[in-house]
Structures are given as C-alpha cells and as structure tokens.
Design a protein around this nucleic acid. Structure first.
Lengths: 136, 136
DNA sequence: CCGGATCCTATCTGATACTG
DNA sequence: CAGTATCAGATAGGATCCGG
C-alpha cells in the first residue's frame, strides 16, 4: 500500500520520542478503548455480520457494538455493507487501512496473552504489600 | 529474560481468536488508556523523574500522571525508586516486564504515526457525508 | 519536588424499550 | 436483523489546595 497523506506531505515516521507522542494519543483513544481492538481482532479473521460480532464478543451491549463500529468506520478502519434484503443483512469488514492494523494489534495481543499471568501476579504482590501496610 | 508465570503453567499464546480475546481486554484497559502507552514510550528511552515525565508529556495533569504511574507500577511494568534526599527524588523506570512491552508498543506507535493522516482524512470524509445528508 | 485529598464535570457504558 | 433513543449509574479526567 502506498501511504501518502491528503495534503501531499510525505508521511515518514519520525523518532518515536519527541515529535510523535502527540500524534499517537488520538489513535490510541480509538484503538485503545474497551472494544475496538477486540473487534479488529475478530474482523481480522474475516467479515462478520452485526449479530455474529455480538455473539462472538459476549459482554458487549448492542449499543456499544454499534457505537464502536461507527467509530471504526469513521476512522476508515472498517467498512459497512448493507444488502437491501429482508431481513436486512449488514456486513462489517476490515478496510485496507484496517488490515494494516492487524499486524500491530496481533503483536500487542500476543504480548498481552503471554504476560497476563505476570501482570496478575505483580498486581497481587502490589495489593498484598498495601494490605500488609494497612493491617499489620 | 526468561518469562514463566507464577503458577508454573507454561505461557503459550493460543490462537488470537477464540480463547484469547477475553484475556486481552484487561491488559488493554491498562495499556490502552489515555496515558499509559505514552509513558511507556518515554520510559523506553531511559529512566525519568516525575516532573521530567510531566514536562515531557505536556497535557497530562499531575493527578493523572500519579495515577497512571501507580497503575503501571501495580502491573509490574514500571519501577518506582525513591532517593531519600531533600528535596525528594523519585525515579521511574521500565521493569523487565515493561521492557518486554517496548516492542509491541513501538510497533503500534509506528503504525499510528504512519497512518494518522489516513485516519484524519477518513474522518473528514465520513463527517462530510453526514453534513451533506443533514444539510442538502 | 513529589504526590495525596477533595470537588466537580465530561464522557462512557449498560439496561431497556422502540422502529424499519 | 440491525439498528435508534433515552435514561441512569459508573468512571475518567482536570483543577485546586494542602503536606512531607
């Protein structure tokens, strides 16, 4: 994919430090919310319909699924296709941009799953230290 | 670094699909919040003191910096070192676990910076379509 | 310098009910 | 089936004052 931006400025990643941090924030606010990443992960496996997604995520409310999908659509990460039939059939899929996000998301997802145990352990150590301090 | 979990279970990433999604969520809620990832990115460059971080992030309130650092510390991603001097000198650094997060975070960070323009463009197209529909 | 405590607001989320 | 609308509770976030 040939990524140039709208105004014609070349899009070259500067050092992650200094310059970039303020650009990363807004993206994180989308991708980093409660559901977006999960949806991207599921859609990475192929297009899904609304209720397929709902069933697959389990815990998400209809409202939040709609809202999150709208957000992802707005950001150009997900496409929404309506087949004008009865009953209506709406299919969601990753766009090219969304596909390009698969790799980073997978990287983070694998890290998360590989280290979730370490994290929980650290949390328990931390909480135990606090309890010990409060009730000696 | 040799990452095995506490209980001695081997930590092998299952397929990102099915099994993993519910494990990823909690991790995302930490790493995916408004500031954690930014802090990890900065700390990736080396240890920093409290106000160094505050100055570097610019936009974060004292409160949120404290809270976020506590959270990261609780998760075992960041270490907090107090030098008992006057004035006090508190240094934050990535732990080994935190270091292991550097790579995934950088991957996502680079993606974010490389595609921020595409995203903003998509948002404007989306919003424009809505305006056109509401005010013909 | 570091950060705890408090107050107050904006936003997010879920439950529920209703529509094409 | 795939939404929209509305309401109420939870949570995040900022501003400010205070203390070690």
């Amino acid at each position: 994919m040939h990524v140039t931006d709208v105004a014609g400025e070349s899009v070259q990643p500067p050092s992650l430090e200094s310059t970039g941090c303020r650009n990363v924030s807004p993206v994180l606010n989308r991708v980093g919310d409660k559901w977006s990443m999960l949806i991207v992960m599921i859609l990475a496996d192929g297009p899904r319909r609304f209720n397929e997604l709902k069933r697959h995520i389990d815990g998400i409310s209809q409202r939040m699924l709609t809202l999150t999908l709208r957000g992802l659509e707005r950001d150009g990460l997900v496409s929404r296709t309506v087949e004008p039939s009865v009953p209506p059939r709406v299919t969601y899929a990753l766009t090219d941009l969304g596909e390009s996000l698969k790799q980073p998301v997978e990287t983070l997802g694998r890290w998360a799953m590989a280290h979730i145990a370490c994290i929980r352990a650290a949390q328990q150590r931390f909480d135990a230290r606090l309890d010990g301090a409060n009730e000696p």
